[in-house]
Computed example of a mutant assay.
Amino acid sequence: MTLPDDLLIDARALSALLRSDTPPTLLDVRWSLTGPPGRNAYQAGHLPGAVFIDLDASLTGPPGTRGRHPLPAPGALQDVLRAAGVSDSRSVVVYDVGDQWAAARTWWTLRWAGHPDVRVLDGGIAAWTAAGLDTTAGIPAPEPGDFTVRPGGLPVLDAAGAATTASGGVLIDARAPERYRGEVEPIDTAAGHIPGAVNVPTAGNTGPDGRFRPAADLRARFAEAGVTPSAGPVGAYCGSGVTGAHTVLALHLAGRQDAALYVGSWSEWITDETRPRATGTD
């Protein structure tokens, strides 16, 4: 299993690795919940050798009762990753615009799918350009990869598991506080949160430069929410499993590598009217 120190890579270290005899497969997964499409930004300029993968179209299943960004079908995911050059024996580095939301979800998806060596470019393409490194508009034609999807590499929660984690462990709601409290809901059809969940907004996982905070800071942050060595099971969710994956990555960096993701998240939870909903800070 990838160790916490190997979950992130900085821009200059990645630049050196790309010039080595064993460069990683590089995936550009820039994405925004409200657009514009990440492919447009990719075509305007990206890291040399990077292949674009669309999170909505290729890394998740179709939206519906399983949420807005459910797990993809293993076979379809395998086809996408192989077409992008992903192989079992070659490391992968993923990046986005710099908020690391889509990169974290891609990291999580590849690790769930069984790839053992996946890293996130800390700070994304913003950190790359800030370091004075070149981008290109050239579109690569990667050799097909041989990666075999083997689901189960990281733990997943369903709705029942999320409820159990909230009552017997620590279930983190990674959304903004006002969405957690149910004061506003700009995306989903109902407001509130899963009863028993605690709010630890994703935005606090990173500093002003968009890079993840040091592991000690993350441990302290999660400890305030009850994630201690003696805590029970730990899970995370958000609106649709994207920023929740960012929190799972932060938990890994903090040393909690058994943290599970409720992939369906709030957008799945509310599809069943019998599931309870809480508001405020309860």
Score class of each variant (00 low, 15 high):
residue 193 H to I: 05
residue 211 R to N: 04
residue 174 A to E: 07
residue 210 G to R: 05
residue 190 A to V: 14
residue 191 A to G: 02
residue 207 G to H: 11
residue 194 I to M: 13
residue 180 Y to L: 00
residue 174 A to V: 09
residue 203 A to R: 15
residue 187 I to C: 00
residue 209 D to Y: 08
residue 211 R to C: 13
residue 204 G to S: 13
residue 197 A to S: 13
residue 174 A to W: 04
residue 192 G to D: 11
residue 210 G to M: 06
residue 180 Y to G: 02
residue 198 V to S: 01
residue 183 E to V: 15
residue 212 F to S: 02
residue 208 P to F: 00
residue 187 I to H: 08
residue 210 G to K: 08
residue 181 R to S: 11
residue 193 H to Y: 01
residue 191 A to F: 04
residue 187 I to Q: 11
residue 210 G to D: 08
residue 187 I to D: 09
residue 198 V to A: 03
residue 210 G to E: 08
residue 204 G to K: 11
residue 179 R to Y: 07
residue 185 E to V: 08
residue 206 T to Y: 01
residue 205 N to A: 10
residue 200 V to K: 01
residue 185 E to A: 02
residue 174 A to G: 03
residue 190 A to G: 05
residue 194 I to S: 05
residue 176 A to Y: 12
residue 199 N to V: 08
residue 194 I to V: 15
residue 208 P to I: 12
residue 206 T to H: 01
residue 193 H to D: 07
residue 179 R to P: 13
residue 181 R to M: 09
residue 201 P to W: 12
residue 197 A to V: 09
residue 193 H to F: 07
residue 204 G to E: 15
residue 206 T to N: 02
residue 176 A to H: 13
residue 188 D to M: 02
residue 192 G to H: 03
residue 174 A to L: 04
residue 181 R to P: 02
residue 209 D to S: 12
residue 203 A to Y: 06
residue 193 H to A: 09
residue 195 P to Y: 04
residue 176 A to L: 14
